[in-house]
Design a protein around this nucleic acid. Structure first.
Lengths: 202, 202
DNA sequence: ATATTTTTGTACAGAAGTGGACAAAATGAT
DNA sequence: ATCATTTTGTCCACTTCTGTACAAAAATAT
């Protein structure tokens, strides 16, 4: 019924995600973004509304493919909490080390850049982190309910510590480039917290 | 022998540190910095050379006053490694929570923004992190030598985990604003790693 | 084929930033 | 008082970026 777009909007969001991720939100002007997407600013505003709107879309897209998104799914079976945690950390280490640009985690980078800085995006990122902690806490509670984890475990404290380690990992991976070193760090923390599934081969 | 500066260079570096810290490196133009320091761009270039040079100075200044700088000093007495670690983490939590701007850690923010992005500043930040890890490793080795820590302790792995937790803490503090929550997170991780000095009142 | 609807190109007017050039100002040393 | 030296103010030419406005282009539905 109308003139079709010359570009694929979905692809554009993916590309924008990569650019925001690599360079940071403030470092990406609408002009630069448009040029690298191969469209005019006119089309940019028409398709995405604003830089901020596109950033939200990009971050949402990231959320779907991020290594930590594994924590979004409820654990399927009893006795699988340690496995889920171990595998997720393992995968995160692997993914971070495999990235030739060493971009780290898009969400964590954005928290560092925008929380308490950007009126609109800051609070949104706040909520994402808080939701992650709450999700981890529920996961640990589930583990306690199935008897996999000791009933004495402090889910709240442990969830906080776990999130702290995960966030830390997602920053130090920018400096520590070897997967084995990264995993050593993660594994040591998980083991200490008694959340490592030992069976998982290294 | 020559015309004196109209402004206090030292104060200016402190102010610049606050601005870089709060807003990030790339977000601070020379124009904006100059204006907020109350000098002209002309004086800025004359006094500091370039934005990058000033950033280096600001970061060095930060290093002197950062909570984690406690790890710079060699442990004074036998049996004090756990205490030093516990106190440093405790102080970090306290300092982060007390900052009304919730800026987090200047160094960690800079790592997130600049590592693998900025030709010159990236590698410098890399080295800072690597040096921190090495310092922690030496500290743990010292603890093993005095018998305070078990000889079976893997200093390298533990130093990595410790640094990861510290970095994580310095990011999540932007979202988790209550000192008690922050300390709960840190304390849980330290306790798990058997590096918490229990005596320290909470 | 015409009407409809959305995308796209171009233009605008201005804001902000860059680094350098150069002269004027200010002071201590002689 | 003059000189040497450094700081400072102002000006330049240039680039980048902003958001909007409006008309031209392109496709579909009738």
């Amino acid at each position: 019924m109308a003139r079709p777009s010359k570009f694929d909007r979905d692809d554009a969001v993916d590309t924008a995600m990569e650019i925001f991720w690599r360079e940071g939100y403030e470092a990406c002007s609408v002009k630069a973004l448009s040029e690298r997407l191969g469209i005019t600013r006119s089309s940019f505003y028409n398709a995405f509304g604003s830089r901020e709107d596109l950033f939200r879309e990009a971050l949402a897209r990231y959320g779907e493919q991020s290594p930590d998104s594994a924590f979004a799914s409820e654990p399927s079976a009893a006795g699988s909490v340690r496995r889920l945690i171990t595998n997720t950390f393992r995968t995160a280490c692997s993914a971070r080390a495999a990235d030739p640009d060493a971009k780290g985690c898009f969400a964590v980078k954005s928290v560092a850049e925008l929380c308490n800085r950007d009126e609109a995006l800051g609070p949104m990122l706040d909520e994402i982190v808080q939701a992650n902690v709450a999700r981890l806490e529920r996961l640990l509670e589930f583990g306690k309910a199935t008897g996999e984890l000791p009933s004495t475990l402090d889910s709240h404290a442990t969830a906080l510590a776990l999130k702290t380690v995960l966030v830390g990992l997602n920053v130090v991976c920018k400096v520590i480039r070897e997967e084995e070193e990264l995993w050593l760090s993660a594994r040591t923390a998980l083991k200490a917290l008694d959340l490592l599934e030992e069976d998982t081969a290294v």
